[in-house]
């Protein structure tokens, strides 16, 4: 059902690759349903070959679906006017490598029909935004991976798009480059852009995304906000000093305690009364309480769990 604030809606999208050797076909995307709402940052995560890039290529009209449909801003993806309002950062920044960042941005801006004066302004703005002003005349082939990725992001922004589609934006970048790219994505988010991001760098996804969809073998196997996907914390961890000897024994004897080490007590996710009991035992036994936490599983944990369950 169409949602009022949906920017992107995918219904039953299926892509089957057939060849002489695989007459039955390989299902790259299998009955995918997905909605990205206005202003949100949605990330599709999944292992290699899970259908992430295929999905993006269908949305951009580079390949065609076997079944199903997709709309962007309420219009069919084949509608050319849709592409006036979207920006796409391809994986590995595939741009003409004999041109400089300045020339490339001027060319991509010209495809939107901007005047020469407007293009000059735009190129300046974008090169400043992505921190490439000083290297504006360096040929793309001589740029580092990080510089290339920033120019590629800039070309995706030439039309000030409402929807940004980013395919593995931090792929192949060093930690500093990844950090810079993450900051740029956060800046885009701050500017109100709707972002659809494909990545398998889960830490960066955790940092920038509002909702996550986990794809596996072409299907969406889990979807939601990070807290929805994480669910309720399963345990409480008390970090303390002096958890040795008799005190450790007394703690282990408590029914809610799972595990005691020299500096932590792990207990089932319990109510306040049980927690107080544990804290009291530590205090009376001469231990010093440092921290009480209820850790949620990381996206990595959620991802691995979802994939494992799906594989079974």
């Amino acid at each position: 059902m169409a949602s009022a604030d949906a920017v992107l809606e995918i219904e039953g999208l299926t892509k089957v690759y057939r060849s002489l050797f695989t007459p039955a076909g390989v299902r790259a995307v299998d009955n995918l349903n997905l909605t990205v709402r206005q202003g949100e940052t949605y990330s599709i995560v999944g292992p290699n070959g899970s259908g992430k890039t295929t999905t993006l290529k269908i949305l951009l009209g580079l390949i065609f679906p076997t079944a199903g449909s997709a709309t962007i801003f309420g219009k069919d993806i084949a509608d050319l006017s849709v592409r006036e309002r979207i920006g796409f950062l391809p994986e590995d920044a595939y741009l003409y490598d004999c041109f400089s960042g300045e020339e490339l941005l001027d060319f991509y801006a010209s495809l939107f029909g901007y005047s020469k004066a407007r293009r000059r302004e735009l190129v300046d703005e974008l090169l400043t935004l992505v921190g490439m002003q000083a290297n504006r005349k360096v040929p793309f082939r001589e740029c580092s991976k990080g510089m290339r990725q920033r120019i590629a992001l800039a070309q995706a922004l030439v039309n000030d798009p409402e929807l940004l589609i980013l395919d593995e934006p931090t792929s192949g970048l060093d930690p500093a480059g990844r950090h810079q790219m993450t900051l740029l994505i956060q800046e885009m988010k701050r500017r109100g852009k709707t972002i659809l991001l494909c990545s398998h760098f889960l830490a960066e996804v955790e940092e920038v995304c509002d909702r996550v969809g986990i794809m596996y073998r072409g299907r969406l196997v889990a979807e939601g906000t990070l807290s929805e996907l994480a669910g309720e914390p399963e345990e409480t961890v008390v970090t303390a000093t002096g958890l040795t000897g008799d005190l450790a024994g007394r703690l282990s004897a408590l029914p809610t305690v799972r595990e005691v080490t020299t500096d932590t007590v792990r207990l089932d996710h319990v109510g306040e009364k049980d927690l107080w009991q544990v804290l009291q035992v530590i205090h009376e036994g001469g231990g010093e309480i440092v921290e009480v936490s209820r850790p949620r599983p990381s996206l990595q944990d959620i991802f691995v769990k979802a994939i494992r369950e799906e594989a079974q």
Partner: peptide, 14 residues
């Protein structure tokens, strides 16, 4: 092959 076509066809170019 160089995938430079991606960035172009993702723009309003038929």
């Amino acid at each position: 092959e160089n995938r430079t076509v991606y960035a172009i066809l993702a723009k309003p170019v038929r």
